[in-house]
Nucleic acid binder design. Structure first.
Lengths: 347, 347
DNA sequence: CAAATATGCTAAAATGTTTAAGCAAAATTT
DNA sequence: AAATTTTGCTTAAACATTTTAGCATATTTG
C-alpha cells in the first residue's frame, strides 16, 4: 500500500518550498512570478507521481467545496430524477459535484437536510422545498449564499428561481378538455400549500370560470400508502360519477389515477377523459395515450445550473435576482377523443 | 450576520481549554477524566449557543467524513432511483450521507467518479459499475476500503456484493412462457459484458435448451438515442415475425419494446407475449398488464446498507466478505394469455 | 512521611492545504 | 555608485478541529 503523497513530498523532492508548488498548481505562477522553467518542472513532477491535493484541506483553507446541494421532493419520482440527472451532468462538466436528497415533502426532514448541507459546506443550493422552511431559506439568502429554488417558490422568500408557469399550463389543459366538449371536469391535486399546486388549481379554476362551470376539486392528503391513495381515488370516481373528465395535478397522481380507473373498469376517454401534469413513459405508452402538460425538463436543468453558477461566480454584485418562468407544453395525445373509429397513432 | 462560532469561543467563554471542550463533545469525558460538573457546563453552553463543529476540520483531522458514495447506472432509471432513495433514507437514519452519481455505463465516467469519490474522502462505496474498472476497484479493496457492489458483480473482483439471482429469474420467466404454449421466444438484451446481463441470458438459454428450442437473441448497443433504439426494435420485430413471445432483460428495454410494439400495432399477447425483467408503473398499468421478474428492491437496499455499515464498523477483521444473492419474483399479470375475446379499445 | 497512584485538566502537535507578507539577489535607474 | 525596482522565491500564519503526552495537585498506600 503506497503512502499517500503530499504537497510536502513534491516540494522536498524538487527542493523548493511548499508555497511554490501550491502557487504553480493553482495557476498563480505568473502572478506570483514563479519562473516558467520551475513551474514546468513542478507540473511535470506532479503529473509524473500523480499527486492530487487533499480536497478537505483545500476546502478548509479556502472555504470552497465545489459541491452543490440539491434537494428534491422524491428522487424516485421520474420528474425529479430526470431533472437531477441532467443537473448532475451539467454541473460535473463545470467542475461541480452534486449531493442530493429527498425531502418527501416533510418539513422537518427538509430542515435537517438544510442543516446537513451547511455542515457539509456546500457552495450552492438548488431547492424544491416543502412549505415551512421560509425562515431558514431567508437566512441563507441574507447570508449571501448562492441559491436557486425550482419547481415551486417559497411564499415570502424573494430569491433566484426557475419554475414552470403551472397556471397557464393547467388553463390550457382545461381549455383543451372544454374544447373537446367535456363539461364536468374534475381536478385531483395534492393537499398542499405549495405554490405550484395553487397555480395549477388557479389555471383550472379560471378556465372553468370562463365557461361558467363549477369546480370539482379533490385533494389527496400526502404522504400516504400507495394502496390507500388508489383506494381513495376509486371512491372519488364512484361518488363523482357525474364527471366526464379529470385533470391530475402531478405525474404520480396521474399514475395512481390510472390505476384507480383501470380497477373500476372505466374506459378512457369514453367514460372519463384524462389529462395529467408532467409527462412520463406510462402516459406516453398507455392505451389510449394520455394527454399531458409536459415540463421543459432539459431547459429547466440548464437554466437552474446556469443561474446557480452565475450566482456563485459573481460574489460581488449580491443584489441580482433571477426569476425564470418557463412555458410548459400541452402534448395532445388522444386524437380520437370524443370521435369514434379513429385507430391511428399520431407522431 | 452573526459570526460563525468556533470551539475556541466555547473554550474561552467557559475558561477551559479547547481540548476539554472537544473531549466532552466527542463523548470522551469519562475516559479522559473530565469531571461531570464541567462536562455538563460544556454541554449546556454548547447547546445554548448552538455550536456545531466544522465538519471539514473534523474530517481532515479524523479521516472520516460520514459520507457514502453511491454509483448507479442512471439515476433516472426507476430501478436505480428507488434503490437510491431507499439507501439514502436508511443511511441518513444511521448518520451517514449519500452522494450519488450516474455512470451511464461509461467506463471513463465511472473511473472519473471513483477518483472523485476518493478525493471527497467518502468512507464507503456502493457501486453498480460498468466493466473495465476492475483494477481500480481491486485497488480499493486491497486498501481495505468499505465497499459493496450491487446489481452486478465485477469479473475477477472478490468483494462484498448484493445481487439478484438473474439467471433463475429469467429461467422462471422463460419457463412461464413455455408453459403458456409459446415456442418462438426472443430475448432482447443490452450488448454488455456485465454479469447480470450474462446471467439473464443464461437463464433464458437454459430453459430453451431444456425444451430443445432455438435461442432468438437480439442485443441492443448502448448508449443510443431513445428514438434510435425504438426504431431498431421495430425492425427486429418486423424481421423476426416468427417470434410469438419476447423477454426484455431490463426495464428500460421493456419500455422501449412496448413502444416499438405499439407503433407496429402488434397486439399483446395475441401476436407477441411480453415479459420484462424489473417492474415499474408502466408494466403494472399497461393494458394488458405486463408480467415481470420483479426485484426485491426494499430488501436489496436494506442488505446493501447493512453490509456496508458492518464493513465500515469492523475495521479490524478485514478478511470478511459478504456476498448475498436475492431471489427475484415472477409476477404473472396477464392471466388471459392465449385466451381470446379480449374486446379491447381498438376504437 | 515518602512514594505511588489517581484526578482533572491543558499544551501542543498533527491533519494538508492556501496565501499574505517579506527577503535576498539581480537588474535597472539616477 | 548609490538608490530603486524587479525578480524569484520562501516563511509562517491561517483554516478548525482531534488527540497524545504530560503536568500539577490531590489522594491513597506502605
Amino acid at each position: 500500500m503506497k503512502k499517500k503523497i503530499l504537497i510536502h513530498d513534491i516540494a522536498k523532492h524538487l527542493d523548493v518550498s511548499i508555497a511554490t508548488v501550491s502557487l504553480v498548481l493553482n495557476g498563480k505562477a505568473k502572478e506570483k512570478r514563479i519562473s516558467d522553467t520551475l513551474a514546468e518542472r513542478v507540473l511535470k513532477y506532479v503529473e509524473e507521481v500523480g499527486y492530487k491535493p487533499n480536497q478537505l484541506a483545500k476546502s478548509l483553507r479556502t472555504g470552497k467545496t465545489h459541491v452543490i446541494g440539491l434537494m428534491v421532493e422524491d428522487i424516485a419520482n421520474p420528474f425529479f430524477a430526470t431533472v437531477a440527472a441532467l443537473i448532475e451532468k451539467k454541473a460535473l462538466a463545470r467542475g461541480y459535484r452534486i449531493i442530493y436528497c429527498s425531502t418527501n415533502n416533510d418539513t422537518a426532514k427538509a430542515l435537517d437536510l438544510l442543516t446537513m448541507f451547511q455542515e457539509r459546506h456546500v457552495d450552492g443550493y438548488i431547492l424544491a422545498l416543502p412549505n415551512g422552511v421560509e425562515d431558514e431559506v431567508s437566512a441563507l439568502v441574507r447570508r449571501g449564499k448562492a441559491l436557486v429554488l425550482f419547481d415551486r417558490l417559497l411564499p415570502g422568500v424573494l430569491t433566484n428561481a426557475v419554475v414552470v408557469d403551472s397556471a397557464s399550463g393547467m388553463y390550457e389543459a382545461t381549455q383543451h378538455l372544454l374544447g373537446q366538449g367535456f363539461r364536468r371536469i374534475a381536478l385531483v391535486m395534492a393537499h398542499s400549500e405549495q405554490t405550484q399546486m395553487a397555480a395549477r388549481q388557479q389555471g383550472y379554476a379560471q378556465a372553468l370560470r370562463e365557461h361558467q362551470l363549477p369546480e370539482l376539486v379533490h385533494e389527496i392528503a400526502l404522504p400516504q400508502e400507495h394502496e390507500q391513495i388508489v383506494h381513495e381515488l376509486q371512491l372519488f370516481f364512484q361518488v363523482q360519477p357525474a364527471c366526464d373528465a379529470v385533470l391530475f395535478a402531478t405525474n404520480y397522481l396521474g399514475v395512481y389515477g390510472l390505476e384507480a380507473l383501470t380497477r373500476l373498469g372505466k374506459r378512457i376517454p369514453e367514460q372519463v377523459a384524462v389529462v395529467s401534469f408532467d409527462d412520463n413513459d406510462l402516459f406516453r405508452l398507455y392505451s389510449p395515450p394520455i394527454t399531458v402538460v409536459a415540463q421543459p425538463i432539459e431547459a429547466m436543468a440548464e437554466d437552474i445550473i446556469n443561474t446557480l453558477l452565475s450566482a456563485l461566480e459573481s460574489r460581488a454584485e449580491t443584489g441580482r435576482i433571477v426569476q425564470l418562468q418557463l412555458a410548459p407544453q400541452l402534448v395532445v395525445r388522444s386524437s380520437s377523443i370524443r370521435s369514434r373509429g379513429q385507430s391511428s397513432n399520431e407522431g
